[in-house]
Design a binder for these strands. Structure first.
Lengths: 202, 202
DNA sequence: ACCTTTGTTGACATTTTTGTCAAAAAATCT
DNA sequence: AGATTTTTTGACAAAAATGTCAACAAAGGT
């Protein structure tokens, strides 16, 4: 038999089902159907549904962490880093909106050893980035504020509109075309807002 | 027997359990335990768990809609309206973060007659608000952009940090006190960001 | 006090979902 | 080909959750 074709198939279909389609509570039957295999194969390859879910989530977490690292590390200006951040993360969140949504659900639900599990999200490289932000604030390149607020603002403006888009699609009385243009313009909108009048050259 | 004491008890405990504690998928047993009643009473008063959930959710939706209406209608300036919006909505989202989170889950999950269900969220009063925003943009009181983006930005900066706070509490290496101050300052941060250098008098 | 209505309880049947296991099938090795 | 290992399948048992129902209890009305 070929290598690990079936295993990979189940995993990638699960990734799509869980974090793109949003069926985080899909039954093993749904998972199997989605991959076009028998249900017991899920157990055969991954032991349990939970283990499969955890595995897929960990893969995505690593992917996201890599994106963040790629954007934030290096010697570029804060403006360029934020610009890269928006670029990379937008695509990721659009592709897997339920990665973010699941995280939100998780962190807001009381559960055992939450602190323990949260340690995986620790990201020391950010501290360097925060210091760069502070430095540019002192230079007047960025409006003065707590650098954490600066960081929070970026992700708020970046993530929230993406995961709320199906809502806005419905409540705003505009065409799909106009909505697409609106969202296409958001990168510029965010950068202008974050860096305000202090024009940056990239 | 007294009026509708038990029914109200179950309802209010459910509201807390679902939308504050975030147990959106609580079993009828958990719901009953939380209210200190027998499980069958949930069915007796509300027919099914789903009906109870829908009822409680509708109540919160109405509450939220009222808050929005209170903030946005009237003759105040856009600055004052946004200020009121932040004030009212912050408390609501902090109290019931899972109202917002459930909505996000809902709208991002494929399901039957989604469009039909979304009609409940339609909010015609917003169009008046959008026109006021446009007018103030023309007057130079607000940075020029699509008024929808203006609106989206407000809720992004308002909601997202609140529902992500347990995450930030963990990944940022600061004390609880500093974090509290950070979040306390957000109203001003948001207003400054949204209205930029155009100082408003209220 | 009696009857009626309302509220409460425990027992039950049904459904859904999960994981295991032994047998069958397919691939691999010698 | 024959033996061995890996993969696939269907059947089964156990667990969890939901809703119904008949019986019981409490309240209110007359």
């Amino acid at each position: 038999m070929k290598d690990n074709k079936t295993e990979e198939l189940i995993k990638s279909c699960s990734k799509d089902l869980f974090f793109n389609k949003g069926k985080l509570n899909a039954s093993t039957q749904e998972i199997a159907d989605n991959a076009g295999v028998k249900r017991t194969l899920v157990n055969y390859y991954f032991g349990s549904k939970q283990k499969l879910f955890d595995l897929v989530f960990e893969e995505l977490r690593f992917t996201f962490k890599s994106l963040l690292h790629k954007a934030v590390s290096g010697t570029a200006s804060v403006y360029d880093k934020v610009s890269a951040l928006i670029h990379y993360c937008s695509d990721f969140i659009k592709k897997y909106p339920h990665f973010n949504i699941f995280l939100i659900n998780e962190i807001n639900t009381v559960g055992v050893n939450k602190t323990e599990r949260m340690k995986k999200y620790h990201f020391p490289e950010l501290n360097i980035f925060f210091r760069e932000i502070e430095a540019e604030m002192e230079d007047g390149k960025i409006p003065q504020m707590n650098p954490l607020n600066f960081y929070i603002n970026i992700f708020a403006l970046l993530s929230y509109p993406i995961i709320m888009r199906p809502y806005y699609d419905q409540i705003f009385e505009v065409s799909k075309k106009e909505m697409d243009e609106l969202y296409a313009s958001r990168k510029e909108v965010i950068l202008k807002l974050i860096f305000q009048h202090t024009q940056q050259q990239s």
